[in-house]
Design a protein around this nucleic acid. Sequence first.
DNA 1: CGGCAAGAAGTCAAATTTGACTAGTCTTTT
DNA 2: AAAAGACTAGTCAAATTTGACTTCTTGCCG
Lengths: 199, 199
Amino acid sequence: MLAVINRPCLTTWVNSTRLFILGSLARGGDMYGHQIRRAAQVDRTELWTDIKQGSLYSALHRMTAEGVIAIVRTEREGNLPARTIYTITPAGREELAALRDEALRQIRLRPDPVDLALQNAQDMPEDELRAVLDNRRAALAAELASWRHLRDTAGPHLTGIEALGFSHTLLRLEAEVTWHEECLKALPAIFAAPDTGTA
Amino acid sequence: MLAVINRPCLTTWVNSTRLFILGSLARGGDMYGHQIRRAAQVDRTELWTDIKQGSLYSALHRMTAEGVIAIVRTEREGNLPARTIYTITPAGREELAALRDEALRQIRLRPDPVDLALQNAQDMPEDELRAVLDNRRAALAAELASWRHLRDTAGPHLTGIEALGFSHTLLRLEAEVTWHEECLKALPAIFAAPDTGTA
DNA sequence: CGGCAAGAAGTCAAATTTGACTAGTCTTTT
DNA sequence: AAAAGACTAGTCAAATTTGACTTCTTGCCG
């Protein structure tokens, strides 16, 4: 029989939320929700993933039910709300490895909404478009500069692998800046000959 | 009073599905669902967005209910299932402009799962990691080559703005290849001194 | 002292996405 | 001519995400 019962939603993109939670628990030891959330901000992991607290807590509940993580105990500091501490289970470590390997195999570039927006900006006046693109360029350049500074400051304290993540971001930002500069250069030609498409 | 009634889910990232549907209808005229889906594949729009037919049809229904698009008529070719043809309404055009402007303002890089995976690959043996990264590099290089070829082939037939999207992809792919090469170069040092982090 | 902004830890309903599945029709192969 | 396969147009329940909201505590300012 083997009736593969309706099992929708196997998510195309690796589920980063799960990968993130399992990874945090595996590397940082047992933690409670808020701690994981803070870890995301502090460790600069916010860069590698994009987690809202809503999804974090849902995921914790779900994953507990599934048995990839487990509740260790509940503790309470002062009169603050009780916190639930989670740990990763052996099943969780297996899933962690599987998710990691899958993420390492995915190579698709994630679509950038700006491209979609540009395709629908045909009727924007040239100077407005130029202003928008130039703002973007400036913002990206600023971000790039601040990352470079961060690298020079925090760089030596990073592990080798953390540094790789850093340089990934730098290279990506550089590419973005370059592209924006190209766009700005190309703009006059585009508006001069708006119909270079239908040869 | 002004009671701002619980209105969750205003999505952080511009909703590309909506932007895509509205844009297609605005530029391509009235269409039915399947046609929009095909347009996504043909126009290479699949690159700018990532739409599964499930979300497409849900979105069409929702957006019809909201009044940003409307059903023009239902037609039927031969004995195939009837198709429902949609058009964009004035309200839709307004939303299109709003979404486009918002997308043009967003500048955050979307996190790449590979970075997250790498952080959790500390315990992978060096040669396995090297193999994975080298596969990725090769795949990306191949993709880059095929895009370059595509640009040389189809390039002259593109409008100026379409060409910009193209060069965006090229630049991004180039950055990825460069980064992978950097990683491969850095690998021996990382494994030689695994504890450069805790100075 | 009163007040109020910010932080901790988390809940929740509604919105949205997902991929499996349906139901019919051509088209090609055996 | 029947079976196999691919295409058309779409539905659907379950999974997942979202950001607003809650309840309590602590710090701070005048």
